[in-house]
Nucleic acid binder design. Structure first.
Lengths: 137, 137
DNA sequence: TATAAATACTACTTAAAGGTAGAATTAATT
DNA sequence: AATTAATTCTACCTTTAAGTAGTATTTATA
């Protein structure tokens, strides 16, 4: 019952970037050091974020990363989607596959409310919202 | 954001057993067939359930499994504990390790309510409660 | 134009979860 | 005592997530 490491790292990275979005560019070495994320793993994640259009990268000397979109327009759920970590409506606690209309699992009804709360939390938290909140380590 | 397959299977198995607790014993072959769970994986799970005292096994011909405790006294949270799938208080969404008092992650506050709901759902659902509810496949 | 510092790409390794195979053990029945 | 049908044990295989290594590419600056 946890997000993948990739998702967790990505959210932390982007939240940190949102904290420091005044500084033009942030590079992988700095991000990895200050966030205690393995450098090579971080660059892999950053490339995903670039490909999905949340972030742009400037290559070459003095390069780094910055946001492509406004931080108020990037929701945590957008980040989860990139790493296949979204909570889907059809997904159930005892799903393994999925609960469908014909066959509701034993915890189907109990799951409805927590699921909605989780989805709400991810869909309604923008990077702007969580910037400055908490430490990012 | 999902329970392990072992936990999901275990809950489904035990819920099915609770549905049929009038029949003296249920054996692995039958359980595997009716619940579409790989036989060998199911027996592995059952052995865990026996070791943890939720279920007793009768070995040898005409053997099988039955509950050791009352179904009203077995909570879903007890099952999760066996497979290290419990939702711990200290565990946070962006935890990877854990959020501690000094360092609260960016989603720490948003996580409090869904976490409690999840814990509540697991701690307050007994096998008796969910028996007969939904199909078990 | 050479150098240095950055991202990107390809491929690999490691660790954990998920699942399988086969033999050993147990016990009722014939 | 032999057979059969059940659980249990030990060991292995497979798949996926997590993480690492090395090289190629890009670009500012001296």
């Amino acid at each position: 019952m946890q997000l993948s490491n990739s998702s967790q790292y990505a959210i932390r990275i982007l939240a940190y970037m949102a904290d420091n979005k005044d500084s033009k560019l942030l590079n992988a070495t700095e991000l990895a050091k200050t966030l205690y994320i393995p450098y090579k793993f971080l660059t892999k994640i950053m490339t995903e974020l670039v490909k999905s259009g949340l972030v742009v990268s400037i290559r070459g000397r003095d390069g780094g990363y910055k946001f492509e979109k406004k931080t108020s327009e990037i929701m945590v759920s957008d980040i989860l989607a990139i790493f296949n970590d979204s909570i889907k409506n059809e997904q159930c606690v005892l799903g393994i596959g999925f609960c469908n209309g014909l066959c509701k699992c034993a915890l189907h009804d109990q799951w409805v409310e927590p699921k909605h709360l989780l989805q709400k939390m991810f869909q309604e938290s923008s990077l702007e919202d969580i910037a400055g909140k908490g430490c990012k380590i």
